[in-house]
């Protein structure tokens, strides 16, 4: 063998080795990329819908929308949602630092069954699971979410009572227990029962209730609630809270519509603008319904999706359909 042939062989071998190594490295990196396909809930939702991960180890995902626009987010995490357009797969990497059971969900409306488009990620590993913030308020207060609601004994206000006007009244407020455990009507009656409030008429006491309600929230929470409401709730409950969202007819008459399979017993979404319904119920009960869901009524369970702060921001925002929180009346 001449020297030249030897040199050629060595060079060729080196080149082939380099190429092979980089290919192998690429293959290794791709091996743990999990491809997740998103389809409308009626066509199967997410596949796969159950993932496993380990604390501290990146979970690589390649997300593909197969039919219509979907979105991907992990519940209770503040990672930004990822928009998924058909034909434009997106790769992402998630790293969890606490073990636990996480829910991933679709963030863009993709039909009446959109909210069913969820999956779970079981994260194993050392460390304490993300601590639950204790039982929800309705459980702490022992409230029954499904108890029939007696008609409000307080006379209903006309129009939306103004919190700013209520703030100017100097109404005598009695000691209330957990403020979010009482309905506006109950607080109104407590105000009426104060001898010092005799000079105020019924409408003024409602303005005082609106003021008490506003003082339990912040402009930042209301803005967050407004954003979450538009994205997650308005399609059923209506953009103005009147229970007239685009899916309301299907929920009210499930049998006449084909999107829902037969056998679904759903009902019309609650109108948050209806004072008779809203003023007799406490924030704690509404919060409970939000996180637990309506149990077969068509109201989704949002507990695994929203953080505690987000859920309360939504409930705070719902009261703006009853009370006028504007800074000046």
């Amino acid at each position: 063998m001449t020297r030249e042939t030897l040199a050629r062989l060595i060079l060729g071998g080196l080149l082939a080795g380099a190429l092979g190594l980089s290919l192998a490295a690429y293959g290794l990196a791709r091996r743990d990329v999990i491809e997740i396909h998103g389809r409308m809930a009626e066509a199967g939702g997410w596949t796969p819908a159950a993932l496993d991960a380990t604390v501290g180890q990146p979970l690589r995902l390649r997300l593909v929308a197969d039919d219509v626009v979907h979105g991907f987010a992990v519940g209770q995490m503040d990672w930004p949602a990822i928009n998924l357009l058909p034909g434009r797969p997106v790769e992402t990497m998630l790293t969890f630092d606490r073990p636990g059971r996480y829910t991933f969900y679709c963030t863009r409306w993709c039909g009446l069954g959109h909210w069913r488009m969820r999956g779970v990620i079981e994260v194993a590993g050392p460390g304490a699971a993300a601590a639950p913030a204790g039982p929800p308020l309705y459980v702490q207060l022992g409230l029954d979410l499904d108890a029939p609601r007696p008609a409000s004994a307080a006379p209903l206000p006309e129009g939306r009572p103004s919190a700013s006007r209520g703030a100017a009244l100097a109404v005598e407020v009695p000691e209330l227990g957990e403020p979010r455990g009482e309905s506006p009507a109950a607080v109104w009656q407590a105000l009426r029962a104060q001898a010092a409030n005799e000079s105020f008429d019924d409408a003024e006491l409602w303005e005082a209730v609106a003021w008490l309600w506003r003082s339990q929230t912040t402009p930042a929470a209301l803005a967050e609630g407004e954003r979450l409401y538009a994205a997650n709730c308005a399609a059923c409950h209506g953009e103005a809270g009147a229970g007239d969202g685009v899916f309301a007819p299907e929920l009210a008459h499930p049998a006449e519509h084909t999107q829902m399979g037969a056998g679904h017993q759903t009902q019309a979404p609650t109108a948050f603008t209806d004072p008779a319904g809203m003023l007799g119920v406490s924030p704690a009960v509404l919060h409970g319904k939000l996180i637990r869901g309506g149990m077969g009524t068509g109201m989704p369970a949002w507990g695994p999706v929203f953080t505690d702060a987000q859920a309360w921001a939504l409930i705070d925002y719902l009261w703006t359909f009853q009370f006028d929180y504007a800074a000046s009346p």
Binding site: M40, V69, R108, W109, H114, A231, A235, V246, Q259
Partner: peptide, 26 residues
């Protein structure tokens, strides 16, 4: 533009305008 099932768009030729609506968000 009101989307009543999934996300839809509307592109108007000639005027070159585009709208995108999601159910619940006119």
């Amino acid at each position: 533009l009101v989307a009543t099932d999934v996300v839809h768009g509307l592109h108007l030729d000639g005027y070159n305008l585009t709208l995108t609506a999601e159910p619940g968000q006119t």
